[in-house]
Design a protein around this nucleic acid. Structure first.
Lengths: 355, 355
DNA sequence: CTGAAAGCGCTTACAG
DNA sequence: CTGAAAGCGCTTACAG
């Protein structure tokens, strides 16, 4: 017998006794749509307020098999893009009566161990913000009927949904823009090489360069990390033929690159070298940086993520199948002042390949 | 073969059948410290692995009355200080086998409704990062034995613990530093006026000014918001006698102030006006800003928060009383280049009242 | 509309 | 060391 000291929390039985009704009646008054007489409901509510009663969500979850909890994995909180994502997704979840269980994954790893522990909580859905998952976990989620949505990352797991920007197109656009600006020694600063974002941005960038007949002048790896990016910039600029333009695979690295270029190497941007980033995070728009950047609209990514996730959850509740989606959110190159412009192009707007 | 309802998830009963033991034996092999024979444990583990069994944390929580979940409320995710806090606290929780339920509170509000809903999950602890709580909720948590820790905010609720920086001392230090730098028209840019951080920083600042015999030349309110701060700076600088120094109640506003001053008003910092911030967030250290700022050591605040919270949780588990703590984490003024220096003082270090 | 009762999947005294 | 059994606090058929 599991006898425990009372916690001081009233249960539905206490309320039932207080209101002079059955425990079922109490449960029904707290279950939207359940059939209870108005008068009964009122009596119960009164008793509940008197005792400070609130239904135990844990007990409810056990029987409904719905925890109303969505887990979210993140790993790059120093990149402004992710706090924005968290805030938006947290709001979306709250609006729909769900809660967000946040956990941090080591960068580049799959976070399997922590993921397993999170799954023990019978979560209703899983959001992976730039983190990957092993196929074993993906299979487990699929079996358990837990929808998973990857944001800003892609994998070849067919059972999960993916929300991304137009990474390849973004890279390609940047290449054309830089060529149009008259640059000839164009370099690429890669993020973590194993990530789909880096692969796609780089592939698009190389394609764009090829289209305009320019070689990739140089390449270094910044691992989506500020310190690594700074080091990569030093190496790049120390070469005999330094680049005259640098495309950074995200703004987080572009910010570090700009700092290194200007404050440490004493170069002028864009007079001595142009810099272009990706994401268009808040700081890219700060006048001290004004980074030309291929924007990934966070708002649209948030909407697409929550719509996909909750559509999948609703399908799971209804017992219907759900076809995983891959949504690509179109972006646009936001022109600021960190890169030299082609004649006739002005900063302050966006630039597309149609230009 | 065991016939289970098609949730796809094996239960301890399935494992028991598969291993040929009782359900209790299964439970015991997954309960650290429970008495099970080695051989039994091995048999159970094998069966569990075969079926992909993991204990249902919800069911466990219901009976142990411990959810292993800690809730955290935040509201200013665009202020770099908070993502750092979240990441640190999330890691701390994970290390101790707890999970973080994150929820966002509207700025300046008490978030009572959402807090109530979160409490339904029988959370083991509550962290409030710069958000306040009503005394009704505080009382509720106290009754239910849920420790609450406020970070970077203080209230007169005696049952909750508080972790703060040395806000008053910080404000006072800034006043002396600015006076020493030869400024005479010193202004204050306030955060949200109802917050304890603003009250304490301002009080300390005013005290410091009084100590050096200087008046508070001007004052405006930025509400810890970038746009409000920018607007406040415009107003301040439009006056007939604009300030020659501006102390911003946090770096988030100091960054916006610097942008407005330089890019919009065409002023030089610190030649035309000195700017000092509070927090020393990451961006304050970026060379494009290099903001002199009173640092609140995030790492220390994270440690103090998690130590306090888990000490309280452990006490609750042991049935022991826990005396709420107020920990003040000492800070220091980090001298960079956004404020004019007294002769002999150089940037790159810290400055204290002892100087 | 209502109550009695059967669980949800576990943990844990209790008795062997 | 082990199993049978009593719950944890709810929801939800089922019968009235």
């Amino acid at each position: 017998m599991a006898r425990r000291p009372r916690t001081g929390k009233a249960t539905s039985i206490d309320v039932a006794r207080e209101a002079g009704v059955s425990q079922s009646a109490v449960s029904r008054t707290f279950t939207p749509g359940a059939s209870v007489a108005k008068a009964t409901k009122a009596r119960v509510m009164e008793a509940a307020n008197r005792l400070g009663y609130r239904p135990n969500a844990i007990a409810r979850s056990l029987i409904t098999r719905r925890s109303q909890i969505v887990a979210m994995a993140v790993s790059y909180l120093d990149n402004q893009f992710y706090p924005e994502l968290i805030q938006g997704l947290s709001n979306q979840a709250q609006e729909r009566g769900y809660h967000l269980l946040l956990f941090t994954a080591g960068e580049g790893e799959t976070a399997d161990v922590e993921l397993m522990r999170v799954l023990d909580y019978q979560i209703d859905g899983l959001i992976l913000a730039s983190v990957s998952l092993s196929s074993a976990i993906a299979e487990r989620c699929h079996q358990a009927g837990i929808p998973v949505v990857m944001v800003n990352r892609v994998s070849d797991t067919p059972t999960v949904s993916k929300i991304t920007g137009t990474n390849a197109e973004g890279g390609r656009t940047v290449a054309h823009f830089l060529a149009r600006g008259g640059h000839t020694r164009i370099a690429y600063l890669a993020g973590i090489e194993a990530t789909s974002t880096n692969r796609d941005r780089e592939a698009g960038f190389r394609l764009g360069l090829a289209e305009v007949g320019l070689p990739l002048h140089a390449r270094a790896v910044g691992n989506y990390d500020a310190a690594d990016a700074a080091q990569a910039v030093r190496t790049l600029m120390a070469s005999a033929e330094p680049p005259d333009a640098l495309f950074c695979a995200n703004d987080h690295m572009a910010l570090a690159a700009l700092d290194t270029l200007r404050a440490e190497l004493g170069l002028r941007v864009p007079e001595d070298i142009s810099v272009v980033g990706f994401d268009s995070v808040g700081a890219a728009n700060w006048p001290a940086y004004a980074i030309t950047s291929f924007a990934q609209p966070v708002g649209a990514m948030i909407s697409a993520t929550s719509e996909t996730l909750f559509a999948a959850i609703d399908a799971a509740i209804a017992g219907e199948p759900f076809e995983p989606r891959h949504v690509e959110i179109p972006g646009a190159l936001v022109v600021r002042t960190s890169a030299r412009l082609a004649p006739g192009v002005t900063d302050g707007g966006t630039w597309t390949l149609a230009n």
